[in-house]
Design a binder for these strands. Structure first.
Lengths: 159, 159
DNA sequence: ACATATTCGACAACCAGGTTCACTATCTCG
DNA sequence: CGAGATAGTGAACCTGGTTGTCGAATATGT
């Protein structure tokens, strides 16, 4: 039986909601001096955190190490990341945030909090917390930064 | 973490929620005889509805007519769509669902309803309706099938 | 009625982000 | 020591999107 809203509505609204927040983030980020950072970059910077390697980064992002390396290339070119040799293991190259990368990440966190506050102001904090709780219930427990599936299609592997 | 979740959590969970549903849809769709239909295809079939043109399809999907035409090419090759000349206007080619396309669309609708029922069973129908209502509140009113923004990337703005 | 403008579909080139395959350099361990 | 795993890189390719261009067909204005 078709429930009141067609089942189609739910996934669509989830996607729209995501886009609203991401678009809001990048509009504001651009305004605050980071015009050339793109949606995927934020996730990458977040996943880099306090230093990692390309393989580990790929694992965290749920993509191949090659895909991760491409992002690192781009972000290094933009001045958000730096590669450095690992003294303990000559195979590895440590990826670390530059000052600009840290700044971008800090601003992103603040902007996300502000956007969330906007939602709370409209929906009410309790409704928003219920929404978050329900989404946590229905989605895999993948605290960001550790093994979570690629954002979209894709079925990583490689090794 | 219990209260005051980082603002980052919200967009992530929205995206995860979307993916859970889409992955569920396509897993079940594959089981029901449509193994080669991919995420974007469902949106295209939905947007085609009872016949349209490439330009109109692009407008509905929020992409260029060329991008829309590529999807039509793929879905025509897979046997879900058919192009036919428009008797009234020799420039146009009418895009229409084949029987297989209609079947796929009908199954998708049923599966989406079932997935939604699963959510309702876990969260409770009232909580789910609240979630849907809140998402409707926070997202642009773009009833599917008419002018809605691309699912992801969005505007070019260099790279 | 006819010149001009617009629209439709197609083709080509390109970009972003992902994949697999392949390869070298470097550990690690039995 | 040597076999095997692991880190990074490069190349070829796929998908899905973008411009830009173009010819054919239809609309439109004088």
């Amino acid at each position: 039986m078709s429930t009141d809203p067609p089942g189609f509505e739910l996934p669509l609204r989830l996607l729209l909601g995501f886009r609203v927040l991401i678009d809001g983030l990048h509009a504001e980020l651009a305004r605050q001096g980071h015009p050339d950072v793109r949606p995927a970059h934020g996730f990458v910077l977040q996943a880099v955190g306090h230093g990692t390697t390309a393989v580990e980064l790929g694992r965290r992002l749920g993509v191949t190490k090659q895909a991760a390396a491409k992002h690192v290339d781009a972000l290094e070119r933009l001045g958000y990341l730096r590669r450095a040799a690992d003294a303990a293991d000559a195979r590895r190259k440590l990826i670390r945030l530059t000052d600009r990368g840290v700044d971008c990440l800090a601003r992103s966190a603040r902007i996300f909090d502000e956007l969330r506050s906007g939602w709370a102001a409209t929906l009410g904090e309790d409704r928003l917390q219920a929404l978050e709780a329900d989404l946590r219930t229905m989605t895999p427990t993948t605290p960001f930064g550790l093994d979570f599936p690629g954002w979209f299609g894709g079925a990583r592997s490689d090794g």
